[in-house]
Structures are given as structure tokens and as C-alpha cells.
Design a protein around this nucleic acid. Structure first.
Length: 329
DNA sequence: CTCATTTGACCGTT
DNA sequence: AACGGTCAAATGAG
């Protein structure tokens, strides 16, 4: 099965820019005439050009990615301030050495996504790093910080994709039994609705035999929506990434492969495209991207995992993201 | 001093 | 035996 979702704030931004250009053009038209102010016309022309250039720039991907590799983890800086970053996250599951339920995701940071993109709402502690044969990048191993305190056995692995270093492959294993999930809110739960026992645990939980081959389609635009297909666990309680990021795309892959983008259309996968809004300012201390973003971020109104949409959404149609009931943040 | 990260060693699985 | 995952001592940061 195949599913593909193409969304992204990029498109919305382009449209916004084009709309702005159109509005400025209308104003210019209204001001054209013998009594018009030359300065005003010049200003409007500049704004029109600016809008169109922004739109073209976005379409050309010029604001995308500038990546810095730090400790095997990619940090992406924003090339254009005010651009709309975009993350691509995909998930897959590997069958090799199946010691516990696992679920993987790939995270691509396009631009200015900021550190919070990878914040999945849990506090993780790194306990190991391994060079993987055949892989260009080492794999980092993280466990839940509350492993000792609360016996939470959730772990995750993070590795850069060989084919596209801008993609972080994150594999989640185990189930959170700590109380982080309850603190972060029920919308984060990835657990099946019919299994309330696991509601105390949080996102990225996969039951042992859960079928990860599924089709999910998310379409954004004026009427955003998610479609799921053969997804036992992905219903309205499912928040694909976490508290902290509105992912722009996620894809699930089945357990037969670890392959990435090239194969994602062959395998059952899902892609979410969430608009990434203007990035937070990156602090120097956040240079180590992945570690820095692992702190849980409080979920408040209009704050999806640390991204404050109440401010970032300025200029966007509020219906764009939240207008559809299918999306539950 | 405390806590998190790093990194080599160890162990289990294939 | 090779590989992947985890452990734990060493190290560093706050």
C-alpha cells in the first residue's frame, strides 16, 4: 500500500506570499493615476517584488537546510529567517533482533526547524553509541531517564540516514511506564484506544504484533485531514510525533526493511506533513541538537510540544492546522 | 558534588 | 564469529 502526504508549511507560505503580492498589486492598481503618490507606488512595487521573490525562493527550496553535523546528529540552521521550516519524519520497524516492540521514525529537518523538532516529549538519557557496520553514522542509544526511578523500560535509537544525512532515523522500543505521559497529556498517546491500560505511557508505543504496514494520508491545505488505513493503533488518539513537534511528514515502514525514502512508496508507510512554523531562536548551548531537545516541553493551549502556535501562527489561516477535527494535538 | 555523556568491554542473538 | 544492544567506569559540565 502506498500513501503519501505532501503538505508542509512551505506551500502555504508560498500561497500566502502570492496572495500578498496580489493584494499589493490591487493596491497599486488603485493608486495608479495622475494623483498617485510615487513613493507609495514604489513601496507597493517593492512589496510585490518581495512577496514574489519569497514565493520563488520557497519553491526553489532556497530556504532549506543548512546542516551542521554534531556528534552524529544533524543540526539544521535556518537560512532564511522567517521561513517556514519543514520536518519530515518517517517511521519504520526493523525485524532484526527483535527484542522488544519497536517503532522507528525518520526525521528530516529541512530548515529552521529548530531543536524542538526532535523533542518527543520524553526525557531520555544516552547510554551508548555504536558504529553500525555498513552505516556511515553511529547509532546512539537512549533510555528513559526514569528507568531507575520508575522502572520505565522505554528506549530509543537515533541514527542518521546514510542516504540522506538530513534524515534522523529514530527507533523507539519498549513502553513508557513512567508518568511522563500523563504529564504531557493524553493527546500524545500512541496507544490503541482499546487498550486503556497503556494510556499512562506515551507516544511511539507499539504493541508486539501490531501491524505497522498501513496507509495514512494527511492532506493539508484549507481542509486538512488524516486518513488512515489498516492502522490498528492509529486512530484519533494517535499523535504521530509528540508533544513538541508538528511533524511535516512521517512514514511508517514495516519490519522487513530499514530502507528509507526510496522504498517508502513501496512499503506501507505514512507521511504526515505538518506546517513547521518559524523556528525558535537557537541558543548556542543547543548546538548539540539532539540532547538539547530531549527535555520535555509543556503542552499548553496552542502549544504543540513546545512550538507556540499562538504566536507562530500569526499570518496563517487558523483553520489550516486546527480546523479539522481529524487532528488532535 | 551531582548528574549526564562518552566509550570500551561484555553479552546475547543470529 | 560478527553484529547489535547494554553495561559501567571514566570523564566532563554545571
Amino acid at each position: 500500500m502506498e500513501k503519501k502526504i505532501i503538505l508542509g508549511i512551505e506551500l502555504v507560505t508560498v500561497i500566502n506570499e502570492l496572495n500578498q503580492g496580489r493584494e499589493f498589486t490591487k493596491h497599486l492598481k488603485n493608486h495608479l493615476g495622475p494623483l498617485s503618490s510615487l513613493e507609495l507606488c514604489d513601496l507597493l512595487i517593492q512589496k510585490i517584488l518581495s512577496s514574489y521573490e519569497k514565493a520563488i525562493s520557497l519553491l526553489n527550496g532556497e530556504d532549506l537546510v543548512r546542516e551542521i553535523q554534531i556528534d552524529g546528529i544533524l543540526e539544521t540552521s535556518q537560512a532564511l529567517s522567517g521561513s517556514n521550516p519543514m520536518i519530515e519524519v518517517s517511521k519504520d520497524v526493523c525485524k532484526k533482533r527483535k527484542t522488544s516492540p519497536q517503532q522507528a521514525e525518520q526525521v528530516r529537518i529541512y530548515s529552521g526547524a529548530g531543536l524542538r523538532l526532535l523533542d518527543d516529549g520524553f526525557i531520555w538519557r544516552k547510554y551508548g553509541q555504536k558504529d553500525i557496520v555498513g552505516a556511515n553514522f553511529p547509532r546512539s542509544y537512549y533510555r528513559c531517564t526514569y528507568r531507575q526511578a520508575q522502572g520505565c523500560m522505554a528506549t530509543k535509537q537515533v541514527q542518521n540516514s546514510d542516504k540522506d544525512p538530513s534524515i534522523l532515523k529514530i527507533t523507539y522500543r519498549g513502553i513508557h511506564t513512567c508518568n511522563q505521559a500523563s504529564q504531557l497529556g493524553p493527546h500524545l498517546a500512541l496507544v490503541p484506544k482499546n487498550d486503556p491500560q497503556q494510556n499512562q505511557c506515551q507516544s511511539h508505543q507499539v504493541e508486539g504484533n501490531q501491524n505497522l504496514s498501513q496507509e495514512t494520508i494527511v492532506e493539508f491545505g484549507t481542509n486538512p485531514k488524516i486518513k488512515t488505513d489498516e492502522m490498528g493503533f492509529m486512530d484519533e488518539t494517535f499523535m504521530p510525533i509528540s508533544s513538541s513537534l508538528p511533524p511535516t511528514s512521517i512514514e511508517f515502514q514495516n519490519m522487513e526493511t530499514n530502507t528509507y525514502q526510496e522504498e517508502k512508496n513501496i512499503l506501507g508507510s505514512e507521511t504526515y506533513c505538518f506546517p513547521m512554523l518559524q523556528s525558535q531562536n537557537l541558543q548556542p548551548s543547543e548546538a548539540n541538537l539532539y540532547e538539547a531537545i530531549d527535555a520535555p516541553t509543556p503542552v499548553s493551549n496552542l502549544s504543540v510540544g513546545g512550538l507556540d502556535f499562538s504566536s507562530d501562527l500569526e499570518g496563517f489561516d487558523p483553520n489550516f492546522m486546527f480546523g479539522a477535527s481529524e487532528f488532535l494535538f
